[in-house]
Design a protein around this nucleic acid. Structure first.
Lengths: 371, 371
DNA sequence: CTGTTAGCGCGTTCAA
DNA sequence: TTGAACGCGCTAACAG
């Protein structure tokens, strides 16, 4: 394999100067058609391809964006989340002619380190990162150094570019669905309390309860991690502990919901006759378990796409929104049903195929930070 | 934000020449400790970080490897596969001080294009790619241009660096498990026939049958894609069609196995009493469906890690194996049981918790191509 | 042990 | 419309 041809070789072959070749690459308007043709022919003959590294050096742009998804415990098991968000990011990035580089860390600290490396070494032009905790040192660092970045998730109290789904509205919708089915004792199993997603979904749950004139009860709320096993334990405590057993339950996650189903089965509770269960993510398994799981579908691909769009726009100097909130859909399946008839009559909602409710909220800001 | 400091600024601040700074970065042995200290202090004060792009240009190495996972239909739904293999690749890459860039394509052609771009533009030093089909134009192209690359999967008939799990042995083990349970009518649902994984697992299935003195029967084999839905259809045809209904079934994939379970349920067949089912991948859901699914666990993380190790070694000029075949484990759960007693007595194997059988095969070659 | 001199491959002035 | 010269930030000879 001969040495890769450079712009110089092409110039020589085409009988022009290197700068002319450079201009042809950039499709500069003030180059004669004849010359362009000649140069292009030479490039083809030599099988020339511009060296991206050299271009990056002089243009001070790599046309690569960093993607940090591996940082949270959430990511590990938000299994369907990971590839899907990447697909969204990738689709937009490619269209905008950006490449992707990925961090692959096992710990929070390692991920932070990798992100900083990526940026300070100028390997990437900007960063998309999953922010899951309520406080995040990396986000602060990025803002402070004014590196271009977009957060996937919500960053409470900090005005940074971010894309999120409306978890409050989503949890409210899920809870209202249960309320409409006549449930009055509705429990909530959240993730770790320092995760924004836990906070937000709990808030939505609470809003729905209070909107229905019900009291928020501490003993109906449990925090766990996102695992099936922990969820199983938490569900048991919830289904055995309180004075009045809940007839319905909102789980932070589908895996958690699966753990609830297992606990219910073991306790001899029928779903949905004795207990209704709602999960989040609408992962593929939902349709394939017994009973099929009612779940809130999060627009994962769109989240990734929106984040990429926001970052690429910022990098390209295009104005656009700095905050985006995406809607979710409640997908009703067999795991939710009318509350067991007690005293007051339940009021079952018609459970059609894939009854879907959407909430749409969008917030627009102005301009971008960083760049 | 002031302009990023360069090696020159550091040199000036430390009262040395730029090349000395460069040597300190490389931790050159023949630099006095005193100077090193001084330079390092200057770097710290200025918050200097070497520009990776400039280094790449002159060293002709980006220390980045490309990862092409999105190319196959398989990847889309081999959901657990994707993040896990990436974790493996990432762990080794980071340890070897390489970064990762990812292709994100929607079509086979697009992926091919992206890979070629990555390589010809010198954005990456080498490539790891999932090769799923029995013939693959990209692999040919890579070999022809002698770019460094490693294939994840098996490439029949081409002697290229590759890492794979032993699908033949794995399918043989799965089938032998069923044979040991007394089954004699064992069906096979494969993926698309031009996927190497389909070919190999079918071969293992056949080997096991013939090893037990049974005849391979065409009408017990069906090809489908990797989806739950198609699997459902395929399973129905298999469970209704043949003269003698199979009492056991090997599915190419866990999602396919789930489709089989659904079909069986619908046909009123009890699992495992009337039908035993084995899947592949040992995805998390296996433990959470009813009945829990017996499945072959593929060492996904290790596959990624081995591929990365192989590529990084090649790039770093380290000798090592050019072909690696990793073992799998059969994880026995509730979906497989003794064959229904017919005439000949079944011989049930003790079904302990997570009975695990391992097959280990390793093949070593010599040296590396490319570089 | 350290400084000087040349590039790496390309984009971008400034002239012509 | 094109060419010459310079520099992006760094490493790698070659001197000293």
């Amino acid at each position: 394999m001969k040495a890769t041809p450079t712009i110089k070789d092409v110039a020589q072959r085409a009988g022009v100067s290197p700068s002319t070749v450079s201009r042809v690459i950039a499709d500069h308007p003030r180059i004669s058609a004849a010359t362009k043709e000649r140069v292009r022919a030479a490039m083809a003959e030599l099988n020339y391809h511009p060296n991206a590294v050299a271009r990056s050096l002089v243009r001070r742009r790599t046309y690569t964006i960093g993607v940090a998804l591996s940082r949270s415990a959430e990511a590990a098991l938000a299994n369907p989340f990971f590839p899907e968000v990447l697909r969204g990011v990738g689709a937009v990035a490619r269209q905008a002619r950006y490449f992707l580089t990925l961090t692959t860390a096992t710990s929070y600290e390692d991920e932070r380190e990798q992100c900083i490396e990526l940026l300070t070494q100028r390997r990437v032009d900007g960063l998309i990162l999953l922010a899951s905790r309520t406080d995040d040192a990396l986000v602060d660092w990025l803002a402070q150094h004014s590196y271009p970045f977009v957060v996937l998730g919500r960053v409470p109290g900090r005005d940074v570019p971010q894309v999120n789904n409306d978890n409050v509205a989503a949890a409210r919708a899920a809870t209202e669905h249960l309320l409409a089915l006549g449930h009055r004792q509705i429990a909530f199993i959240g993730g770790p309390p320092d995760f924004v997603v836990s906070v937000d979904r709990l808030a939505g749950y609470r809003e729905a309860l209070e909107g229905a004139g019900l009291r928020f009860q501490d003993d109906l709320v449990v925090h766990t991690d996102f695992s099936y096993e922990q969820a199983y334990v938490a569900a048991r405590s919830l289904l055995v502990g309180p004075a009045v057993r809940p007839t319905a339950l909102v789980a932070i996650d589908d895996s958690v919901a699966l753990g609830v189903l297992a606990a219910a089965r073991e306790l001899g509770l029928r779903v949905p006759e004795d207990l209704s269960v709602v999960g989040f993510n609408d992962s593929p398994v939902c349709a394939h378990v017994a009973p099929p799981l009612t779940s809130v579908a999060i627009p994962i691909f769109e989240l990734g796409a929106a984040a990429a769009r926001m970052l690429c726009d910022a990098l390209d100097g295009v104005e656009g929104p700095r905050k985006i909130l995406l809607p979710s859909r409640l997908v009703v399946r067999g795991s939710t049903g009318p509350a067991p008839a007690t005293g007051k009559g339940a009021m079952p909602t018609p459970r059609a195929v894939e009854v879907v409710r959407a909430e749409v909220v969008r917030t627009f800001g102005g301009g971008y930070a960083g760049g």
